[in-house]
Amino acid sequence: MPQETLRNFMKGGGVSVIVGTVDADGIPTCCRGIAIASKDDFDTVTVYVPSATAQETVANVATTRRVAISCSHPLSHESVQIKGLTRGVRLAPAGDEPFVQASLDEFGAVLEQIGLPLRVTRSVAHWPAFAIDVSVEQVFDQTPGPKAGQAIA
């Protein structure tokens, strides 16, 4: 069921991705992700974060491993949150760049519909990027409303 939810949610792209981590002292931080993908039907996901802005995030997952990834559709505010553990962090290979670029373009196209010009989203740093592999431990409904925070079983 969580896998099915994630599969349906990611269809069509244009998803906003944000990543939350925490350091060894319990100080949380966040950064924007550029893309998210899965090669095993969402048992694990790979989230791409720009190396320019994700140094703190990468340092955190290297020490505490815990990750929260929120994915949302900007037009409808429908959102899910993945909680998981880091399985590996690597500099994303050049072969992944077209996918990351395409994800940013799809996101930009969605934001353009709500008034943010394409030139603005295109100016966001996205490459080089770190690829963080995360096992999907739990998935939560995060759409604003009384059901936000409910686990998707």
């Binding site: 990543v19 925490v22 949150q81």
Partner: peptide, 10 residues
């Protein structure tokens, strides 16, 4: 327990 949470705030 040190599990992060990240969300949008209105």
């Amino acid at each position: 327990q040190g599990m992060p949470n990240v969300t949008y705030v209105s």
